[in-house]
Amino acid sequence: MQHYDYIEIKIPAKNQYIGVARLMISGIASRLGFTYDDIEDLKIASSEAITNAVQHAYADDEEGEVVIGCAMYEEKLEIMIADHGSSFDFEETKKHIGPYKDASEERFLREGGLGLYLMETLMDEVKFHQEEGVTVFMTKHLGGERGESEDVQRTANS
């Protein structure tokens, strides 16, 4: 099993706290050595997922939470955003997350407009799990997509 550090925060499901989560993700990405452009991509993709949770997860009269978890590896950052409000086991949740399976799941994530498109475009991997709520799982590899740095090294050594 690969070693990683994990940070998790819970924010009220309110628009004014989305910036707090963006700041956390930005700080973690900076600490890991991501480029400015990659950090901006991480912030945009995360904002889309968090905004979707804030706007769609709870009824207007219902108090809710959004959980943001970040697993920091040497070569990547994995971000989980869950709207069910309870803390979760990172490894257990990761086992049950997969790509969307049918058009209704895809439509659910597309409700906010370009959200899913932006997440898929800006991140290296995007998966989600819909059960008690929605959990979005996004991965960004340090130095580009998986295998990209190996291809660049092979080209440079040729």
Rank of each mutant, 00 (worst) to 15 (best):
Y4E: 05
H129T: 09
M24V: 07
I11P: 06
T139D: 11
S104D: 03
G147C: 03
L109V: 00
L23Y: 12
E105A: 06
I97D: 00
Q153S: 11
S86C: 07
S86W: 14
L109T: 01
I50E: 02
L23S: 10
Y36C: 03
V126S: 01
G144W: 10
S104G: 07
E111L: 13
L77I: 14
N52H: 07
F90T: 12
S158F: 15
V134M: 05
S104E: 02
P99G: 11
K101F: 12
E63P: 10
M80S: 05
V126F: 08
G33F: 01
R107H: 15
V152E: 04
L109R: 10
G112N: 14
D89A: 04
A156R: 12
A59D: 09
G112I: 13
S104N: 12
A45W: 09
M80E: 00
S104K: 15
E132I: 09
F108R: 09
E65H: 05
R146S: 13
S26L: 00
S26K: 15
V66G: 00
H3P: 12
Y117Q: 11
G144P: 09
E125K: 06
R22A: 05
T155F: 15
E105S: 07
L109A: 05
G27I: 02
E74Q: 14
A103E: 14
R107Y: 15
E125H: 10
I39H: 07
E106R: 13
V134H: 07
E48Y: 12
I50M: 01
E91W: 11
G147K: 08
T35G: 11
L116C: 06
G19L: 08
K140V: 01
E62H: 12
S104Y: 11
N157L: 13
Y17P: 04
